[in-house]
Simulated assay, not measured.
Amino acid sequence: MSWGLAGRRILVAGGTRGIGGATVELLLREGCAVALCGRRKRDVEAAARDGEVFARSVDVTIPDAVEDFTEEAVERLGGLDGVVACAGGGSGGGIEEASRAQWTATFEANTGYSARLLGAAAAHLRAAGGGSAVLVASISGWKPGPQAQYGAAKAAQISMAATLARELGRDGTRVNAVSPGSTLVPGKRWDGMRTEQPEEFAAFTREFPGGRLIQPQEVAEVIVFLLSDRSSGISGANIPVDRAQNAPTPFGY
């Protein structure tokens, strides 16, 4: 099934692996012109596909980095019809151990750069007639689980999507959040648990009524739907993609 996105110009921050990588794959199959950035240079080089996409190694937490990349992408693609904020992460332990710097870094790696990305992209989306922005948050934004700084940053992303949908909607721009549940990405956290702690992993799957974690492609389908005109009536929403997962992690307090 096609989402009718052929020719659209889309920027994906955090587009090298996992959910971001799956989103880029789907956008390319749709016939989109894609710009992506990621932190690791080797992953960016692999994602560049011999020039099929415009790709840069960018640490989105560095001041002006995501803004500069946005302008480069606009110049290369000739404008923007959509943006996806898919980078993210967290640092620090519990409330007694996490430092002020770790709280700040976690906020910037999720909410802060997302705000700067939309600020840099807003005028270009407006020039294209509005477009769509998707912030990839997490069920950790409303389902309690360690660590608090990560959940707080994701909750802020969800709130920001609703607020910016009102602010930017006057120009025809839609803004939505997507909240994945625990996603099985090769080589990442849950994949490592599956191979190294199979009994614990099997117990964790009971958090899902269907007995299996989310796949990156399942989240990517929802992101691409929100970028398309088929979701034209949806803005300011937070859409969970968690298969009714109960808790974000298997680790209690």
Rank of each mutant, 00 (worst) to 15 (best):
V241W: 02
A137Y: 06
M193P: 04
T195R: 15
Q245M: 06
G18H: 08
E96A: 14
G141W: 00
A162R: 14
S2N: 09
G236P: 06
V12K: 10
R243I: 00
E67I: 13
G233A: 15
I10W: 11
P180N: 11
S179C: 15
G88F: 14
L117Y: 14
G20H: 11
V222G: 10
W103R: 04
T16W: 10
V34M: 09
P209L: 04
A202D: 11
A137E: 05
E108V: 05
G119S: 06
T173A: 13
A133Y: 10
Q215C: 02
S57H: 00
D229C: 02
S2P: 08
E221D: 07
F208K: 02
I139M: 13
R29V: 04
I62H: 07
E218F: 06
A105F: 14
E72I: 03
E199D: 14
K188I: 00
G181K: 05
G131E: 12
A47M: 08
D68F: 09
V66D: 00
V44M: 09
P248Y: 13
T111Q: 15
L135M: 13
E67Y: 09
N176A: 13
A220H: 03
A73C: 00
R212L: 03
A105I: 09
S114I: 06
Q245L: 06
R9A: 06
S140W: 13
G21M: 05
R230Q: 15
G94P: 01
S159I: 03
P186F: 01
Q157G: 04
C86E: 07
E52G: 00
S182D: 02
P198D: 11
L80T: 09
D59F: 01
R243E: 01
Q197K: 15
D43E: 15
E200Q: 15
S57G: 05
L125I: 06
I19A: 02
E52L: 15
R29W: 03
V136S: 11
R170L: 11
D81N: 14
S179K: 08
G141L: 02
H124K: 01
G187F: 00
M1K: 10
L5P: 08
D242L: 02
I223E: 07
V53W: 11
A115M: 15
A35L: 05
F54G: 01
A46C: 11
W3D: 10
G31Y: 01
E97Q: 08
E221P: 00
A33Y: 03
D50G: 15
A161V: 05
D43T: 10
R126M: 11
G233T: 10
F54E: 02
